[in-house]
Write a protein that binds this DNA or RNA. Structure first.
Lengths: 121, 121
DNA sequence: CCGGATCCTATGCGATACTG
DNA sequence: CAGTATCGCATAGGATCCGG
């Protein structure tokens, strides 16, 4: 007897599906990967990623915090200082996410070539 | 001298960024993972995934085909038969994607717990 | 059976300006 | 510095029906 609930993304209502789909949010992987090298402040994060607006970065970070992947540290000083860092749970996701990044960078040229070929016809 | 262009998702205009973000489309991972076990017909794909409308599944498959990740095989018969299968490029993406799936299923409970805790406050 | 054609809506995302 | 407040849009995604 196994009382541990099993999760399966191929079951439409399984929470794991929604979670996996969340991880594909436009900015989530970039935020996670940027935090891989250590804690960063809000503005640092912005600069590293580039082209992300504060509003969207905030909402992405909130979601990550809510999901337990990122920790938010507020230091009360003037001006205020806020640092974001990966939790242990977040760290455990790093390797899979980095694999996606590596694949994307490694095969980008092939994908682009495939697109050109496809668009010709 | 290295004439090979390097890709970096942290560079805003690098094609690899857009490609990585594409891979996070709502249905892309599910389609890829469902095709992992072999070629499937359109309707089979639909049934396996469940809750995906034909229009969206079609557009997802078209994008995957355009990106060179999925191959579309049409058999002219009545009624028509269309099979989809992963290309070699698609196969190479399977392992990273499956790692994401495994993580999602393995840590779903923790994420859900984190959400509950977060929402309490 | 496959999936295109339409129509529609929810919302992710962006731009800008402003505040504790 | 670290966001929040508005506003607005593009578009991914969904529901339905129809056609080859």
């Amino acid at each position: 007897m196994d009382s541990t609930p099993t999760f399966n993304v191929l079951v439409p209502d399984c929470p794991s599906r929604e979670i996996m789909q969340r991880l594909g949010d436009k900015w989530t992987p970039l935020v996670m990967l940027t935090l891989a090298s250590g804690p960063l402040r809000f503005s640092e994060l912005r600069q590293h990623i580039g082209s992300v607006t504060p509003k969207v970065l905030t909402s992405t970070l909130r979601t990550l915090e809510r999901d337990g992947l990122v920790d938010r540290q507020v230091t009360a000083q003037v001006p205020i200082r806020v640092d974001y860092e990966l939790t242990n749970l977040g760290l455990s996701l790093l390797e899979p996410m980095d694999a996606i990044r590596i694949w994307s960078e490694k095969h980008a040229a092939k994908v682009m070539a495939a697109r050109e070929l496809f668009d010709e016809n």
